[in-house]
């Protein structure tokens, strides 16, 4: 996903001289091609995220289109007030790319995990929030971000994310993608963890349970229609996110379902208000935090066993 983002940024830079790549002491090797082609348009701010964002806003005030890139937890929290006041309040055309979505940085621990970034970014007025689920989607989203006149947050996994799309698909901001059809329940997911949701779908199918899998690549603006339709059709919604269940996709889905008055079973899968536990590989950390495909299968079955009051 990261490489897809940087490749798309490289292409954008070729098309539009206003596009800049900003980093805070990261991007060795992966930005080499960009740096070689556009040395004056790659700016390394050093380890100073807050300054990077305020300066990005100042650059945007003079017509530049800065894409500010660093580790998602630092970008969204260290520089939160700068994002709020200098970018959003002033309506500046700044793009924010956070790498290390969820706990993809596994053993580096909770300081490097981004597990509340969706929640805090979606509170910001004027902010568009994207969580690509695959390299192809990251590419489409990066190109789309340049077309949007205003603040955008892109939540990226690091490298090696599998492609979930076979062939092309039409990407539309704010429109969820039905990856799998099914009538028994709907798994609504976002970002890299979509791969686990798809594995869970296959396992459930073997057990005779047919679930929809819906990829919400745009958290804000949210596709309320696809969520409400899924709740109405299946009566069982399971949200899956590599993020806290407080304030993220699950919360956003709950908000639209409650406001629509749809009667449905509902379950949020994610970090239950805690920091991620454990070390090891990315898969190890997923397992230790209840976000493996097996966990999604188990929780989906439990959700289907909930009896709704008549």
């Amino acid at each position: 996903m990261r490489n897809a983002y940087i490749e798309a940024l490289y292409e954008l830079a070729a098309e539009d001289g206003r596009v800049l790549a900003l980093v805070a002491d990261n991007g060795a090797i992966v930005y080499d091609k960009f740096r070689a082609a556009y040395p004056g348009r790659f700016i390394n701010f050093g380890i100073a995220e807050a300054n990077m964002i305020s300066v990005a806003a100042g650059l945007a005030s003079c017509g530049k289109i800065p894409f500010a890139y660093t580790i998602a937890s630092f970008l969204t929290m260290r520089a939160f007030e700068q994002i709020r006041n200098d970018v959003c309040l002033q309506k500046m055309n700044v793009k924010l790319a956070g790498i290390g979505a969820g706990f993809v940085y596994s053993s580096l621990g909770p300081t490097h995990h981004a597990t509340v970034d969706i929640a805090i970014m979606r509170t910001l007025p004027g902010m568009t929030v994207f969580c690509p689920s695959s390299p192809m989607e990251a590419r489409k989203i990066t190109k789309e971000a340049a077309r949007i006149d205003g603040p955008v947050y892109i939540r990226l996994s690091v490298g090696g994310s599998p492609e979930i799309y076979e062939g092309g698909y039409e990407f539309i901001t704010g429109k969820g993608v039905m990856l799998k059809h099914g009538g028994d329940a709907a798994i609504i997911t976002t970002g890299g963890i979509t791969t686990e949701a798809l594995k869970a779908h296959d396992e459930l199918k073997k057990r005779g349970i047919n679930v929809q899998v819906i990829n919400i690549h745009t958290i804000k603006p949210l596709d309320s229609e696809i969520i409400i339709a899924a709740a109405q059709m299946t009566g069982a919604i399971i949200t899956v996110e590599e993020h806290s269940i407080i304030g993220g996709l699950g919360s956003a889905a709950a908000e639209v379902i409650a406001e629509a008055g749809v009667r449905t079973r509902f379950k949020r899968i994610g970090l239950k208000g805690v920091f991620a536990e454990g070390h090891g590989t990315y898969d190890d950390v997923k397992e230790q935090n209840g976000l493996s495909a097996a966990d999604i299968v188990r929780e989906t079955v439990e959700c289907l066993n909930i009896k709704l009051p008549s």
Binding site: S54, A57, G58, L59, A60
Partner: peptide, 9 residues
């Protein structure tokens, strides 16, 4: 820092 950005531009 916002002004720094304007100067850099």
């Amino acid at each position: 820092p916002f002004g720094v950005g304007a100067a850099l531009a």
